[in-house]
Write a protein that binds this DNA or RNA. Sequence first.
DNA 1: GCGACAG
DNA 2: ATCTTGTCGC
Length: 304
Amino acid sequence: MDLYSYFYSLVKQIPPGRVSTYGALARALGDIRASRACGVMLSQNPDAPRIPCHRVVMSDGSLGGFTHPEGVKKKIERLRAEGVSVENGKVVDFHEILFEDFHTDYPLKALREEQEKLKERVKLEDDFSLGAVGGVDVSYSGRWAYGVLVIMSSPFEVDMVVRGKFRVDFPYIPTYLAFREEPIISSLLSRFDRELILLVDGNGIMHPRFFGLASHIGVKNDVPTIGVAKSQLLGSVVEDKVFVNSRHVGYFVKSGRKRGIYVSPGHRVSLETSLEIVRQYLKHKNPEPLRLAHIYANEFRRSG
DNA sequence: GCGACAG
DNA sequence: ATCTTGTCGC
Ligand SMILES: [Mg+2]
């Protein structure tokens, strides 16, 4: 699913003389949670003003951002040329000229259904051999992605580093992270032959559909995975356990100087074992394979 | 108005 | 995540 292309074709549906909103476009994609991603994709508009990003404003009729050497002034100018006035930073007659009637198939709805389907294949029992432990992370510059897989044969011995540069066709949207990063990480994994347990920068079953990035990668590649997130996507923390809809899905682990990390099994690993393995590799805030993958991915992006 | 929103 | 075009609920 090339969500960038799909999104730009939605934006082209907004007629001259009308405006739409980031939220309306997000709902046309299939989830209001994508509203921020709509702003990000517009900021990366490859063909303005043919893709009329100047016709997208905030839900209260105020202008929102505009990436241009002349700034938001250019947005006002392009709207005015189409007969849309802006006064006191707000679109005049906003509710009258608001366009929300997008022709769409709601692609994010289909992706939620894909998550629900693949979820049936998640196994939350230990099913791996004690071999290498890997960590993956991805760094970005615009639509370029720099992925790194670090393999450690034991704590704390780096065995191998795999790197790859990719073009992404999906933005970051909360709860849809896998559709952005899974293709990148699967490609890196295909270049490593041996057995491993993979630590992933994101959640396993700590997810509204119990199918986060780590589970997605695990199921698609038939690899044991553990999700390790730096912040809380959802759920409630009681002592060191995290619950989603009263189901125990993972742990909050105090680590580093302040706060901590959120650990949840992805695939082929039990709740308890996911915690045990992460703890074995904990020297800083993040377990070592992830900490190194993060550092190497940033170096890769900045240098080549 | 402020915080929440995996990365 | 990067250096940045949001929305909703409390
Ligand atoms: Mg990351």
